[in-house]
Design a protein around this nucleic acid. Structure first.
Lengths: 340, 340
DNA sequence: CTGAAAGCGCTTACAG
DNA sequence: CTGAAAGCGCTTACAG
């Protein structure tokens, strides 16, 4: 049973067996119009017989097109991201594109940029771009199609698909105020993320309209992570006059805060109201029943991919900026302040 | 400000500017030995001046090598998978490879197979292969390097990196029996996953050695999902003589079961002991404090990638089969059965 | 309807 | 140390 190392079958091999030229194989297999039915049949047979599979690299080099889309993401272990990435990947799959995960530039931005520019990507979805990032400008200069997903940028004209973060945060503020809270705190996102900034702004504006202040001591910033939510909440809840409610700029933070409350022996919502943002799957788990601001991630994903494909199709089309609307989901983590 | 659509810069452009031949540019930039220092300098300058970035597709076609590794995964929204994918991606990144997400074949296996065989991947990591899958054999026939991650297969000789599922499940069974449980149930994984099968086997064997049976009515199978864990647990806990403990074949199932217990008003561990498997991040969250079987996912990822790279390097090397050991993590979801 | 030729952007023997 | 040539596997005008 000596194994002969079989070189991959090429279209030239198929041509030889079918008794036609190599370009004819290419035409027949692609279903290009104007190929004799009999030829198509011959070629198909030969291809099947040899187990031919088109070499994507050869095709890409020739057409100067690829079927790879880069998705720039941070750590996938942050539970929010899979819920965004999964529908993005599905949409791309459906459109015949493969998804390449590209690590968030962060500090080591240089390699990433090279990966993005080396011609292997048809386009890029940016899901993390901080407000100061120069990546969008670089991509623009290189004429690489991209869409900002869940982020907004003022500096560069670009396609972007986001949600109405300010309006959503106002809904949260509104609810919290309405049920009687006055000692309100917030666990906010990173200062350089547009969605974090917009959520903070909306939340503050709505509070201000009710004449309620959000002092710096009760508005803590940090990454959108479980750990950050947990730590910031512990800090807020350990103060002498602890807040009766906390708005968290996303659900991952909120769930961190929920766990922190639990670890401190506080009941939710009796001792603390928690409101999140995103409505990720675990927000509705029995143990959390998180009251939160919802928007449709699958819709955001579908629209983002649609915009990217349109841009790939027509690089000169005018830029689009889309906002997925938000709604409030009232579950079990909000209630009137305890009269403590 | 008329924008001229600039065609991407090629090595030929760099050659022209530097006043050398195109192959010399290639050699200089790759740091091939035997290029004059002065030439390297000239070429570098020209490349920088033009903003040259090597075209990966051209390189791949020429070398017949790519820097893309496919990771075959199921839905990323299953919280277990990001914890496996993230370290895999990190390891691949570190080795200079990009990660392409490829949807689990499932029923629509055909497209996937084409994607895997079209020559664009240096290798493949299979994280979901069901026991009956023919994908490994197909990859083998095509000489495409691959590693089975977190799965084991008897039919095909292949590189695989798994964990000692049977031994781990025995640890769980041991603990449950030791603290006094006799009415024991199990929420098991899918029948076609090797890790599910091995965990069930180990659990049953250890129980049998203590003379304890696991009747079919208390051993329910299903996918490794939150929903499955929730539903199966509700079913088990609604029976007249409900079990006092349940072993879940992974943490996602266990957390589903935990939530189900909560929704039924049962206390954990007072009314129900729950033991999981994997020790994913959320197992240690304050609200769960899940007792579970642990193994090092980063280690599994690192070893899997090492094996894949070695296979890419030397297709003829002998196959490796590795098992990452397990340990028991005792947290707060186990306790003696209530004397009910 | 189909073939011969050229080209996509690289790398790699082969000369010199 | 460097250039001319060939080739990786396709697609696409161009002829006929």
């Amino acid at each position: 049973m000596a194994m002969t190392v079989q070189k991959p079958v090429t279209s030239a091999d198929v041509a030889r067996l079918a008794g036609v030229s190599q370009p004819t194989v290419s035409r027949a297999l692609r279903g290009e119009p104007g190929v004799a039915a009999a030829t198509i049949e011959k070629v198909r047979r030969a291809a099947d017989a040899l187990g031919y599979v088109l070499n994507e690299t050869g095709r890409s080099l020739s057409t100067r097109r690829t079927n790879l889309v880069g998705i720039v993401v941070p750590e996938l272990t942050n539970p929010f991201y899979p819920e965004l990435i999964e529908p993005l990947r599905r949409e791309l799959d459906g459109a015949g594109y493969r998804s390449v995960l590209i690590a968030d530039p962060g500090e080591s931005g240089f390699n990433v940029v090279r990966d993005l520019l080396n011609g292997s990507l048809a386009g890029v979805l940016l899901t993390t771009s901080p407000m100061g990032s120069n990546l969008p400008q670089v991509l623009k200069d290189r004429r690489i199609p991209y869409v900002l997903v869940n982020r907004v940028l003022d500096l560069v004209e670009a396609d972007m698909c986001s949600t109405d973060n300010a309006a959503g945060a106002r809904l949260a503020a509104s609810l919290i105020v309405e049920i009687g809270h006055r000692r309100i705190a917030a666990v906010l996102g990173p200062g350089d993320a547009s969605n974090a900034r917009d959520r903070e702004r909306g939340f503050r504006e709505e509070l201000a309209e009710h004449g309620i202040a959000l002092p710096a001591s009760r508005a803590l910033h940090g990454p959108f992570s479980y750990e950050s939510g947990h730590e910031r909440a512990v800090q807020l809840l350990s103060s002498t006059r602890r807040p009766t409610s906390v708005f968290c700029a996303n659900d991952v933070l909120a769930i961190g805060a929920y766990n922190a409350a639990r670890s401190l022996g506080l009941r939710v919502p009796e001792d603390l109201t928690i409101v999140g943002f995103d409505d990720i799957a675990m927000a509705s788990w029995d143990v959390f029943q998180l009251t939160t601001v919802r928007y449709e991630l699958p819709t955001m994903a579908a629209e983002s991919v649609r915009m990217l494909l349109a841009r790939i199709e027509d690089p000169k089309r005018s830029h689009e900026s889309l906002m997925i609307p938000t709604t409030l989901v009232k579950r079990a983590t909000h209630g009137p302040p305890s009269t403590g």
